[in-house]
Design a protein around this nucleic acid. Sequence first.
DNA 1: CGCCAGGCTAGCG
DNA 2: CGCTAGCATGGC
Length: 317
Amino acid sequence: MERGTIPASDIPGGLDLQATLESGQSYCWRRTDEMMYAEANPPTGGDWYQTVIRAAASPTDQSEILRVQQGAEGLHWESTTDGAVLARRFLRLDDDLHSIRRKTCSDDLQETAWDAYRGLRLVDGPPFRTLVSFICSSQMRVERIHEMQISLAREYGVDVETEGQTIRTFPTPPRLSAVTESELRELGLGYRAPYVRETAEMVANGTSPKTAMDMAYPDAREWLTQYPGVGPKVADCICLFSLGFTQAVPIDTWIRSAIADHYPSCTHDKYAATSRAIREQLGGDNPASDSSGNVADSYAGYVQTYLFHYLRSRSRG
DNA sequence: CGCCAGGCTAGCG
DNA sequence: CGCTAGCATGGC
């Protein structure tokens, strides 16, 4: 196991690891001491988080895992390989938050959200896991979405051993496609069960969500809706949290009410129209759009993530 | 009990 | 096309 520390001075704009990994944008990391319910075991602030980067493909192959912990000096990591490179990529540590804030922030609400959660970052999640977890997310609370992913790993994943510690992998597409709908319903997935199974089958048969990375953002979002259980909102989550489209603004119930309260002129009947308007509103400089309705690349999705986390936290006390 | 949660789909007009 | 009832589950 290799170990190291990424100095805080090498993380432009800082990092709030807990906010980044527990704000509902990623369900691919687990605290090493996590129990079934996050609320029954609240984070203490210095927790280790871990994820499986790659599961062994054969008995002689070695799996890759990554653990990270926030410390005063910076981000501590442990990994089977170069954890600094992995952490930089998956936690987007090269995003300059100061620069992004300068480019986008345009009103008091946004300033307040940025001030409240300094160091909150977008994540770069694995496409298949992100696809499945956000299919599970529809009409569901953050804590329970996380619990569903833990259940899927427990039932259909495999153990990875690293120096005495065991990590459970998330199931592969073929494994998940072989599960029955009723089994998934018994795990509490509800009406999402057939969506998850059929989507896993599509991916197992070669239709990978990574394909959308090479498309223009509007095409990527539309293409992703071919998976059952994926509509425009879930597609936006996949675009933003795993495919690198920082201009994507997922419009969920929280953001929709925020739009109504703070940006009422952006409200439209159709998702696509509201999406375009709010992306221009939050994107800051350079809001030009072309004839196909594509808003120029921006960091509007970053602003969305700050607003979501801030508004949701405020309402919960 | 009713309402809500990082919504989507099938089936109507 | 656009519109909406129905869909599972658990917490408050």
